[in-house]
C-alpha cells in the first residue's frame, strides 16, 4: 500500500518513540541529581540525624500556607546528647528495625505502605502520647509490648508483639523523631500536634 500518509508511517513513530523516551529519561536523571541533593541528611528539607537532640514541632507557615517542621532548642532524646555519628548509628538501628519487623505492611511511612494502622510520619508528635515528659517512656513501653499497652479506640485492632528489644525501641523512636522533622510539603494536612512548650 503506497498511499500511507506520512503521519501514519511506522518509521516516523519509531523515531518519535525513541526520542520521547530518551528525552524524558534525561530530564528525570537531571531532576534526580537535584532531588537527591535536596533530600540528603543534613539538608534544608531533611535535617541531619542529630536533630534528635532538639525539639521538633510542626507549625503552620503562613507564607507557604501549610504546616512545616520547626526545629527548636535542645531537647535530647532520653536525656542524652549524641554527636552526629552516634545519632546516625541510633537512627540506623531504628530504620533497620522498622524494615526487619515489616512495619510498612501495617503502617504508612510518609504516607506509603499499608493502611491497617496509623500513619507514622508524625507519630513522634502524636497528641495521644499525652505530654512531652511522658512521651518517651510511653513510646518505649508501647513498642516493646503493644499488646499490653493497646488502645485500639474500640476497634480491637492491636499491634502485635514484635520482639523489639529496648535498644531497638530507642532506635525506632529516634528514627520516628528524625522522620517527623522532614519537610513533607504539608503532609499530613491539618495534623494536630502534641502540646509542646516552645523552645527556640
Amino acid at each position: 500500500m503506497s498511499e500511507i500518509p506520512w503521519w501514519a508511517g511506522e518509521g516516523l513513530w519509531r523515531k518519535v518513540a525513541v526520542w520521547v523516551t530518551a528525552g524524558s529519561f534525561v530530564v528525570l536523571i537531571f531532576l534526580t541529581f537535584d532531588s537527591i541533593e535536596a533530600i540528603s541528611a543534613g539538608s534544608q528539607r531533611v535535617p541531619a540525624y542529630s536533630v534528635i537532640n532538639q525539639q521538633v514541632r510542626y507549625e503552620f507557615d503562613a507564607a507557604r500556607n501549610i504546616q512545616k517542621p520547626v526545629i527548636g532548642g535542645g531537647a535530647p532524646l532520653f536525656g542524652q546528647t549524641l554527636d552526629e555519628a552516634e545519632a546516625e548509628a541510633l537512627v540506623t538501628l531504628g530504620k533497620k528495625t522498622v524494615q526487619a519487623k515489616n512495619c510498612m505492611n501495617c503502617h504508612t511511612l510518609l504516607g506509603n505502605g499499608a493502611y491497617y494502622a496509623p500513619d507514622l510520619t508524625k507519630a513522634w508528635l502524636d497528641p495521644a502520647w499525652g505530654s512531652e515528659t511522658a512521651r518517651e517512656t510511653l513510646m518505649l513501653g508501647f513498642l516493646m509490648d503493644p499488646t499490653a499497652n493497646a488502645r485500639t479506640y474500640g476497634t480491637g485492632r492491636r499491634m502485635p508483639k514484635l520482639d523489639i528489644t529496648e535498644q531497638e525501641a530507642r532506635g525506632v523512636i529516634a528514627f520516628l523523631k528524625w522522620m517527623s522533622s522532614i519537610d513533607t510539603n504539608g503532609f499530613p494536612y491539618n495534623f494536630k500536634s502534641l502540646a509542646q512548650e516552645s523552645r527556640s
Partner: peptide, 15 residues
Amino acid sequence: RAIEGSTWAGYFAGQ
C-alpha cells in the same frame, strides 16, 4: 485526613 488531621485517634475515628 481532612478533619481529624491523621493522628492516632483521628485514624481510628475514620476506621
